[in-house]
């Protein structure tokens, strides 16, 4: 029996730690940038879904259905290769990855935001109208701040999904964690060790984000707004 090759060997992983951590950093950067973009786009799409204009509503509906309905795998190829072919837009890899994730997540977040806005009671808007606020002011000062607290937990959940979804960006060669793990695994013939390490890193990131959102929620509930009808669910319960 030849015992010279151990069953598990993480020495190779340790020697490649700089590359893996770099990949981890890029993955987190992509996820964070994408979720921020997605929140901004998602909010506008949600407001369009709720507007009086039939055209805006239709646009927002198609947008949401499209980006929720297409697999991320296809979407990333559309953005990276498709745009280059159709419109001659050659995006660098990382921006292409961020845009892809932002599109996908904005589709989901727009629905989350829409339901969050609708969850704020009509009486709130009526009270705002009664003191003479304009529609826009009612949204800005009354409805959205309350909706924000409602959507905080599901948004944290979406962030967690975005972190894990960065792995798919490896197919267009974004040098994120999964791509790095893949390359190193092939180099050292140690797929199990490298992918497990990547998995652990994703897990740590997800735990961190979960803790962060729980913390924000606690802060939020401390500044008023703890009535039971709109009590926030712990983000931990979603994952």
């Amino acid at each position: 029996m030849d015992n010279s090759v151990p069953l598990f060997d993480f020495a190779a992983v340790w020697s490649s730690r700089a590359l893996l951590l770099e990949g981890f950093g890029i993955a987190m950067f992509c996820a964070t940038a994408a979720i921020i973009l997605a929140m901004i786009i998602g909010l506008f799409i949600a407001l369009m879904r709720l507007s009086n204009s039939r055209i805006l509503r239709a646009f927002a509906f198609v947008y949401t259905q499209l980006f929720r309905g297409v697999p991320l795998y296809v979407l990333v190829i559309w953005v990276y290769f498709g745009l280059a072919i159709v419109a001659n837009i050659n995006l660098p890899k990382i921006p292409a990855g961020i845009i892809t994730l932002a599109l996908l997540n904005s589709g989901y977040l727009s629905e989350t935001f829409r339901s969050g806005i609708l969850a704020v009671s009509v009486g709130q808007s009526e009270a705002g109208a009664a003191i003479g606020l304009t529609k826009r002011q009612i949204k800005r000062f009354i409805v959205l701040p309350q909706a924000f607290r409602i959507v905080l937990a599901p948004s944290g959940n979406q962030f967690v999904d975005a972190i894990k979804d960065t792995a798919i960006l490896s197919i267009i060669g974004v040098p994120e964690l999964m791509r790095m793990a893949q390359q190193q695994a092939d180099l050292f013939y140690r797929p199990f060790e490298f992918y497990t390490t990547a998995g652990i890193l994703y897990f740590i990131a997800v735990m961190g984000v979960t803790k962060l959102f729980t913390f924000i929620e606690k802060r939020m509930s401390r500044i008023g707004f703890t009535n039971s009808s709109q009590k926030l669910t712990n983000v931990g319960e979603y994952i």
Binding site: A127, A130, G132, T134, P145
Partner: peptide, 25 residues
């Protein structure tokens, strides 16, 4: 819609369910 608030600002209203803003002091 921009004009209506001018009317409403001159008419105070109090509701059955208070409708105070829960996120403000």
């Amino acid at each position: 819609e921009k004009k209506l608030p001018q009317l409403r600002a001159e008419i105070g209203m109090v509701f059955q369910h208070f409708n105070v803003f829960p996120h403000m002091t």
